[in-house]
Design a protein around this nucleic acid. Structure first.
Lengths: 137, 137
DNA sequence: CTGTTTATGCAACATTGTTGCATTTTTAGT
DNA sequence: ACTAAAAATGCAACAATGTTGCATAAACAG
């Protein structure tokens, strides 16, 4: 699914920055921070990027995965609606390289979490990410 | 344990703002945001509050529980060292009143999480908090 | 009580995020 | 392809969080 088609599907106007943001987030396995997006999309105005992120979030194409050090991190949504976000993975913040990895969680843990009476559950962890664990020994 | 004694125990100088911050966080079951702390401690300079929060965090007396809407929320630490934080509870952000509640998690879930090879794990959830659930029916 | 160490307050600054408004772009209808 | 309406963009201004340097004030060891 191209970003243009995704926008059309959600009845959103097709603009350059929206395509660029969706492309960037689709290409990245991890969530991207606002400042990284801004650097990558420096051709566009700061305000426009903020409003683009808001629009895409409101319509459920992306979501704010988490905040860290006063910065928001965004990721593509797959199988979410604007109201209801189901991200049954774990955000692993690497204690070595600082990168963020999205990991699948075990079926057992999913079942455990599903029993909790909450609308939305997020798990984050700190530890060595897959690439740093290999290099570090 | 009074806040003064806690500071002495950690070899930190006893100052008014440190006592005030520890008192405020000790009295609150939920984490407090920077702005709430600032309002409560308006007699002190903004910068001093920031540095106090940093110092207390670095020495493991408090921790940054989470961030939301560009604001950090702080809570007292019990049984943590500066390096290693063990908060085996769940932060429940109430979808009704917006307050944050710290909930204990089941032993089963604790065991599940303990098997994961990570240094630190945090769980957050959205849903009605205990008081709103009662009132809401 | 005195000297040293450390914390505080102040000013200035960087960054994230928001709002209002004029201009441009997108899109639907012809 | 052209036009008009609707919406998105860029710009300026602003508010808030968080940081840094430095002079002054407070804490503590002796």
């Amino acid at each position: 699914m191209t970003s243009e088609k995704t926008l059309k599907q959600f009845n959103l106007r097709i603009t350059k920055i929206r395509i660029a943001v969706l492309d960037a987030l689709s290409a990245s396995p991890a969530a991207l921070s606002y400042s990284v997006l801004q650097d990558a999309l420096s051709a566009f105005d700061r305000t426009t990027l903020y409003r683009t992120l808001l629009t895409l979030t409101d319509h459920g194409l992306i979501h704010k995965a988490y905040e860290e050090n006063g910065e928001s991190y965004y990721a593509r949504c797959f199988g979410c609606t604007g109201q209801d976000h189901h991200h049954e993975h774990l955000h692993l913040k690497c204690s070595s390289c600082g990168g963020v990895e999205c990991l699948e969680i075990s079926e057992e843990l999913k079942l455990n979490l599903a029993q909790l009476p909450f609308e939305e559950i997020n798990i984050s962890a700190k530890g060595p990410c897959s690439s740093c664990a290999i290099q570090g020994g």
